[in-house]
């Protein structure tokens, strides 16, 4: 007998005539979340490997965001005719959160293709790869979030009692990131043109979403803003931190977008999960 660990018995059954896709997808999600430790370990490895040999590592992201805030803050506060104390807290929260959103969406496109070696060799729940992508970006984001506190401290901006609502916003963002990783990860594995298309959309969205500019500058047209999903998600964090809580309509929109993305993503996942090994 070997001294090594004995593997627990398992059963695997598949019948192409009755594929029970929903059940298999549920099992994948369940097992995937149960293996969050694996996803976390892989995410940390990704981060370590990405910044191997670099002295300040992921803090390069913090530094570049800080420079961006400083440069854009000085220029745009003048262009838009706003005072720095008024403009910078808005810009900092917007830019930091946008960077997280952008990184998560862009990374979602390679969530599955990046794990190609594992997908074709080992039976690991695909959910793990999506979680890995979310964790990886959450870790990077954690290096930039303190910038918000620094800017708030410098300008003496004190968020009101509704500030903890931002945590709810963060949870919404994470849920969206997970669904996007699952969905975009699979779609991009099948259709290799989707990645560049997404990158283009994100670039456009950066300018169409109130990040550099403030929503009230739109005047009457601002009522249409909740139609922009990025605005809704951004506002669930910016609202509580900068504007004394977001409008109920914005929260409703953010929740609706999350539910829609979740439904699309899970349906797609359940339907095409079995094909993924052939796509990557």
């Amino acid at each position: 007998m070997l001294a090594g660990p004995i593997l627990a018995p398992e059963t695997y059954a598949f019948d192409a005539a009755a594929p029970r896709r929903a059940e298999l997808a549920r099992k994948d999600l369940r097992d995937g979340f149960a293996s969050w430790r694996l996803a976390w370990a892989l995410a940390r490895l990704d981060l370590r490997n990405r910044y191997r040999g670099s002295v300040i590592g992921p803090f390069w992201m913090t530094l570049s965001t800080a420079l961006m805030i400083l440069g854009l803050g000085l220029l745009y506060s003048r262009l838009l005719g706003l005072s720095l104390a008024d403009y910078l807290p808005h810009l900092t929260v917007s830019l930091v959160v946008w960077n997280v959103v952008n990184a998560m969406v862009t990374d979602a496109c390679i969530a599955m293709t990046h794990a190609e070696g594992v997908i074709r060799q080992l039976r690991v729940p695909f959910t793990v790869h999506a979680l890995r992508s979310v964790f990886r970006n959450a870790l990077t984001a954690a290096h930039s979030l303190p910038l918000i506190l620094v800017v708030f401290a410098i300008f003496g901006h004190l968020p009101g009692p509704e500030a903890p609502l931002a945590i709810l916003g963060l949870i919404l963002l994470m849920a969206n990131a997970f669904f996007a990783s699952l969905f975009l990860g699979m779609v991009c594995a099948r259709f290799r043109d989707v990645g560049p298309i997404v990158a283009n959309i994100m670039q456009l969205a950066f300018f169409l979403t109130p990040i550099l500019w403030k929503p009230e500058l739109l005047k009457g047209l601002a009522v249409w803003l909740p139609l922009n999903p990025f605005y809704a998600v951004l506002e669930t964090m910016r609202g509580p931190l900068v504007e004394g809580g977001g409008a109920p309509l914005v929260w409703l929109a953010a929740v609706v977008y999350t539910v829609v993305l979740g439904a699309v993503s899970l349906t797609f996942f359940a339907r095409f999960r079995g094909r993924l090994a052939f796509w990557v």
Binding site: A8, P9, E10, A13, F14, A16, A17, I119, Q121, A277
Partner: peptide, 14 residues
């Protein structure tokens, strides 16, 4: 790893 497009496959055991 590869899901069959036809037929049945069942496996019992680690």
């Amino acid at each position: 790893i590869y899901e069959p497009v036809g037929g049945r496959l069942s496996i019992d055991g680690s």
